[in-house]
């Protein structure tokens, strides 16, 4: 029996079918996110952790990957890093963004649940981080977990995207 499965995907609105163009501008991160959603879905019904927009994105990924939404021992957390990483980013540049994202990514990769639980939410909001509360929640979910894979790290539009998978002990 598998343990708890947790995956993090970014809340990219371009994942939603109502915003589909003819050319997919987020093909790589979409593929990684779909694979992660499918992987958590293998552990049974999946709880989506996200703000209202992120929840829409998470549900879409689950539906598209054939996973089922519901309470169980699988979690899809929809959150991402800063949207102020450079001067083409949606929030323009903030010098604090890259170091902040680096610290969060290190905590995700380790994983370091305490560092995530102690996330500076005020700074995260100033840096237009996607759903800081979701990252804080990861601090709870990842206690005793090990990292299965850091599948995707990119910032093609000045927004930090991470797709990471973890497995925890049986609940």
């Amino acid at each position: 029996m598998t343990g708890v499965r947790v995956a993090l995907v970014p809340g990219v609105l371009a994942f939603l079918p109502e915003y589909a163009g003819q050319v997919d501008p987020v093909a790589e991160v979409r593929a990684a996110s779909l694979a992660a959603a499918a992987w958590v879905g293998e552990a049974g019904p999946v709880t989506v952790v996200g703000d209202p927009q992120g929840t829409r994105v998470g549900r879409r990924l689950l539906a598209q990957s054939g996973a089922e939404e519901g309470a169980g021992s699988a979690y899809l957390v929809v959150a991402n890093g800063s949207a102020r990483r450079n001067d083409t980013a949606p929030g323009y540049v903030d010098e604090r963004a890259v170091p902040f994202d680096d610290r969060v990514l290190a905590a995700l990769a380790a994983p370091d649940p305490e560092a995530l639980a102690d996330l500076d939410v005020e700074l995260a909001e100033a840096l237009l981080v996607g759903h800081p509360a979701g990252l804080v929640r990861l601090g709870e979910l990842l206690r005793g977990a090990r990292t299965v894979g850091v599948d995707h790290v990119s910032d093609p539009f000045g927004v930090a995207y991470w797709v990471v998978r973890w497995e925890g002990p049986q609940p």
């Binding site: 609105l13 371009a14 915003y19 589909a20 163009g21 003819q22 050319v23 501008p25 949606p90 000045g158």
Partner: peptide, 8 residues
């Protein structure tokens, strides 16, 4: 053709 503005 390709839409990403405000959808990142």
């Amino acid at each position: 053709l390709r839409a990403i503005r405000a959808l990142q």
